[in-house]
Design a protein around this nucleic acid. Structure first.
Lengths: 204, 204
DNA sequence: CATATTTTGTACCGTTTCGCATTAAATTCT
DNA sequence: AGAATTTAATGCGAAACGGTACAAAATATG
C-alpha cells in the first residue's frame, strides 16, 4: 500500500532517515540555533528539498518532535510490560530513558522534548502543545500500570495511581535535565535506583 | 564604597535593573531566539551600551543566569528555615518555586535555567557549567536540611539525606518543565503536595 | 578653561538567516 | 515519443543578525 507509483520524479532520499538526521541537529542545538544550513548538511538535502518534503523549519521541528514522542512511547510501553513486577517496570523505564539521554558527541543530550522544546514552548504554541501532550501521555501510560498494580495488590489499595505516576515521571524529567547539565552516568543511575525505591517502596 | 566617583560620563541607567529586563527577554524566548534588538528594546539601552556594560550576548546571558541562580538560592534558603518542620520546609520550597514559575505574559515561564539554559547546554560549555552548578547547589542545600532532619529524628536513621534531597529536587525540576508545558496551577500544586508526602512520608 | 575619560546615540559593516524563483533531471501517463 | 508531473540543484534576495566605528555629550581632573 506504500508503492502506489506516483507520477513525477521519485524521491532520492528516505524521509524517515532524513528526519532522524534533522532530529540529531535539533537535539544538539535546539530549535532556534539550528540553521537550515545545519539541517541541510546533516540530511544531505538541499534546502528546497527539505522545504518541499517537510515545510518550513518549524514544521520540520514539530515533525521530529512527533517522531521522538512516538519512539519514546514505544520504549515506555515495552518497559511497562505488565508480565513483569512493577519494580522492574519502573527500573526499565529509567534505564530506557538513560539509554536515550546519555548519548552525545560533546555532551549528553538529555531529552529532546524537555531539553529543547521547553525553550520554545512559551513563544510557540504548537511546540508547547506537543510538549504538554507528550508529558501527559507518558503520565497516563504509567498511570495505567499503577492502576493495574493496585488491582493486583502490588501496591496498597490506598495508593493514588495518578500521583504515583506523576512522581515516577518527575524522576524521569529530572534525569533528562541532569543529563543535559552534565551529570555522570553513575549519578543518574543512583537517582534512578532511588526513584524506583521511592515509588515502589511499598511494593514487594 | 560604591560611590568612588569615576572619571568619565556617569551611567544613565541601573545595571541591575537592566539585567532584570534582559532576564525577562531570555526567559520568554531562550538565549538563541533573543535578539540584541529585543534586549535593547526591553532594557532601553542601545546596543553599544549593552555591550559596554555586560559584554557580548553570551556574557549578558550568563550574567542573568548567575543572578537568577543567586535569587533562587536566597528563596531556597529562606524556605528551608530550620526552625520549621521538614514537611513545611519542603512545601515552602515548592510554593516558592511555583510563585516564580507561574508568571508569564502568554504562557507560564517555568524555570529560567531548566527552561532555557538546558537548550544551550550541549553546545555552550559555560552555560552547561552554570546549569550543572546551580542544580548541584540546590541539591546540596536541601541535603543539608535532610541531614539535620535525620539528626533531629524528623527522619529515620536509615534515611539517605543525599538521595532524599535529589528526589526532592526532582519534583521541583518536574514542576519547572510542566509549568512551561502549560500545566495548570492546580495540577502543579497537587504534584507539589504529593511530592511533600512522598519525601516526608515518614516524617511526623 | 582645557584635557582626559567614560557613556550615549547613530549609523553602518559583513555575515548569516530563511525562504523561494528558476531551471535541469527523472519518472509516469497518454 | 511527447506531455505532464514531481523532485533536485543552483543561486538569489530581502531581512535580520551580532558587533563596532565614530562622533557628540557629560563628567572629573589639572
Amino acid at each position: 500500500m506504500k508503492d502506489e507509483k506516483k507520477r513525477g520524479r521519485p524521491r532520492g532520499f528516505d524521509p524517515k532517515a532524513a528526519l532522524g538526521k534533522a532530529r540529531d541537529v535539533f537535539w544538539d542545538r535546539g530549535f532556534a540555533a539550528a540553521s537550515l544550513d545545519n539541517l541541510s548538511a546533516a540530511t544531505n538535502l538541499n534546502r528546497p528539498s527539505l522545504y518541499g518534503a517537510f515545510g518550513d523549519k518549524e514544521d520540520l521541528y514539530l515533525d521530529t518532535l512527533e517522531g521522538y514522542r512516538q519512539d519514546g512511547m514505544d520504549v515506555l510501553i515495552e518497559a511497562l510490560d505488565p508480565s513483569l513486577p512493577l519494580r522492574d517496570n519502573i527500573a526499565r523505564v529509567y534505564a530506557g530513558a538513560l539509554a536515550i539521554y546519555l548519548h552525545g558527541e560533546t555532551a549528553a543530550r538529555g531529552c529532546l522534548l524537555i531539553g529543547t522544546a521547553s525553550a520554545e514552548a512559551v513563544q510557540h504554541e504548537r511546540v508547547r502543545e506537543v510538549l504538554g501532550r507528550s508529558l501527559n501521555d507518558f503520565d497516563d501510560e504509567i498511570e495505567k500500570r499503577m492502576r493495574l498494580a493496585v488491582e493486583r495488590g502490588e501496591l496498597p489499595r490506598s495508593a493514588d495511581p495518578q500521583m504515583l505516576a506523576r512522581l515516577a515521571s518527575a524522576v524521569m524529567h529530572s534525569l533528562a535535565v541532569r543529563a543535559r547539565a552534565g551529570d555522570s552516568r553513575e549519578t543518574l543511575e543512583a537517582i534512578a535506583r532511588s526513584g524506583v525505591e521511592m515509588i515502589c517502596g511499598s511494593a514487594p
